[in-house]
Design a protein around this nucleic acid. Structure first.
Lengths: 340, 340
DNA sequence: TTGTAAGCGTTATCAG
DNA sequence: CTGATAACGCTTACAA
């Protein structure tokens, strides 16, 4: 009983007394079959519990109605949320989503991309643009449309559906400086293989330079995506002399972790220390004090990315990139520096 | 330029001056090919950038090395986390993960299950056991192994990899009652199509009954998975007379939302009101006061589920269910009721 | 409107 | 160890 007789097109055809071609037509373009036959065929289909063999279909039709997505990790709320929105649109369009994760490793990401392509993904969702050129070549050789999400750049020829991490970070840092802070620290996400994290650092530096401060005074610590690492990083930063009066974080998780730890060290936020985040995930407004951060439209990004992909598949046209807006959400964790 | 010449086995064979069979062997069981030929073939493979066509392979080999997972939503942190762990094991075993989400809808879930099976999923990860029997029949007709995760029951014949939601909830409620609370409210997750949420309600009722209190006094409100809905629900519960002194929540998100709202209404937690959660996601320890909750080993569950699946595929044996342990994590949000 | 039959790119069996 | 060649289940001209 290894392979309990999975019904095939032929079984259905026999049952319904038609050819396999007719059954196929009933399923794929029902309007090409006269109603009476169609009814009979569909009855057989459900009686037998037939469902088409995907491999065979892919092989014959040269398309799979499958969209692939490779994300760094599902454990990061921003990707989970964006991907959920992405998948909703994918489903609406009658396609299926294939997800793989790369754990922020380039080699693994490449493997996964090739894997999904081999599996017949009609199009791909990629996060960020930090990967080897040969992968882009591979994709264009294969004629596989893709969008690069969570990043946005003018100076490139990918289809971006994202936002400008650098200028968003710059805006936040500028706000901090204009509040009077001069000693600023930064807790960045791991920048290796992560253009978003790098761009956020660059943005902060941009603001510092533009405001006539010295970039070399900016102390940047990189930390893994966890509350605990954010806490460790802030502890280090606070041991510096002179101690920073504001800490920009590369994401909300680090910021919340930093805030918690600082408070447990007896430091008042924002009176003695300002902390800001990035992403605007839900935890920001639930934490005390609530976290000032950059709002990123993750769901909208997921939806837009999916739509762009379908548009590209439809029209073969080069995709028009979408530049999504971000903005600073002012909450309680950012204030002017202490008088002292 | 629609389909820019994707290289096939035959192209490689020609390049390397061997038959397609040999190329196939080089890729699938290299030991069957003498080293010299193998090298030549592999060189051609990489020169041409060949990768096998998945559909064709599936068709010919009758297996896809693909595991499917259907989860309610990726936006729920517990699934995101469990799934990430699941996928890690899947990858280690050389398989690929296909994810679909059902949005807690039975019809959609059924569609997705059939879809993934049609796509050749070799095995399936399912969440909870709340679905039509005909789906289980379908799966066993097809000989597709599956595990039911996030739930555990003794009285059934599925392969469970999960925990007993009911007795875990009961343990929490018992603890609350033993602390002296008699007026208890509950904010449950939506119970429709969700055996976990239902079991958690039942567990609370079990404890109430066993401690000689009246189940009818338990006011249960169902709420969507969001901070805001948890807040709305608590507001309603607090308007009751007599007002509950403890509120058991079906998950941490509801609990945190409830806690925030109660505090914003001027209520001291836990002095005037105790609140408990379920799942032990990270936010619990970051919120103030920190949340007393049930710890669930989500990552371990994901890993175990994957391992069970591979074991089942390997041995054709009926899977031994895994009963995972949960326990109450005592933090700050639960205390004895106010004296009054 | 329906049927026939030629692929689609692999794997696997059987000879050589 | 290697090469023919027959499936695998479906789609899609082309014919009828």
């Amino acid at each position: 009983m290894k392979n309990p007789s999975v019904p095939t097109l032929e079984d259905v055809a026999r049952e319904a007394n038609v050819s396999t071609a007719t059954v196929s037509r009933c399923l794929n373009s029902p309007e090409k079959v006269v109603e009476k036959t169609r009814e009979r065929v569909l009855a057989s289909v459900s009686r037998l519990g037939y469902s088409p063999n995907f491999g065979a279909r892919a092989l014959a039709a040269k398309r799979t109605d499958t969209i692939g997505a490779i994300i760094p990790t599902m454990e990061n709320a921003i990707f989970a949320r964006g991907l959920q929105a992405f998948q909703e649109v994918v489903s609406e369009n009658g396609a299926t989503l294939l997800v793989a994760s790369s754990a922020y490793r380039q080699d693994l990401e490449e493997t996964q991309i090739r894997n999904l392509v081999a599996r017949g993904a009609d199009a791909l969702l990629l996060i960020g643009d930090d990967r080897d050129d040969k992968i882009y070549e591979f994709l264009s050789n294969r004629g596989i449309p893709y969008v690069v999400a969570w990043s946005y750049r003018d100076d490139d020829n990918h289809c971006f559906v994202g936002f400008d991490n650098r200028s968003a970070a710059k805006e936040m840092a500028a706000k901090i400086i204009e509040l009077g802070h001069t000693r600023i620290g930064m807790i960045a996400g791991l920048t290796r293989n992560n253009d978003r994290a790098r761009d956020r650092v660059l943005g902060v530096k941009d603001a510092i330079t533009e405001h006539g401060l010295n970039v070399d005074d900016l102390h940047v610590i990189e930390a893994e995506y966890s509350f605990a690492e954010g806490g460790n990083a802030v502890e280090h930063l606070l041991s510096l002399a002179p101690r920073p009066t504001a800490i920009v974080c590369g994401n909300d998780i680090l910021a919340v972790g930093a805030m918690k730890r600082a408070r447990s060290l007896g430091i008042q936020i924002p009176d003695q220390l300002s902390i800001t985040g990035f992403d605007d995930i839900e935890v920001c407004s639930v934490v005390e004090p609530s976290l000032t951060t950059i709002h990123v439209p993750h769901r909208n990004m997921g939806k837009t990315a999916a739509k762009s992909l379908f548009a590209m598949m439809e029209s073969e046209a080069i995709c028009a990139s979408s530049h999504l807006e971000t903005y600073v959400v002012e909450r309680q964790s950012l204030a002017a520096p202490p008088k002292s």
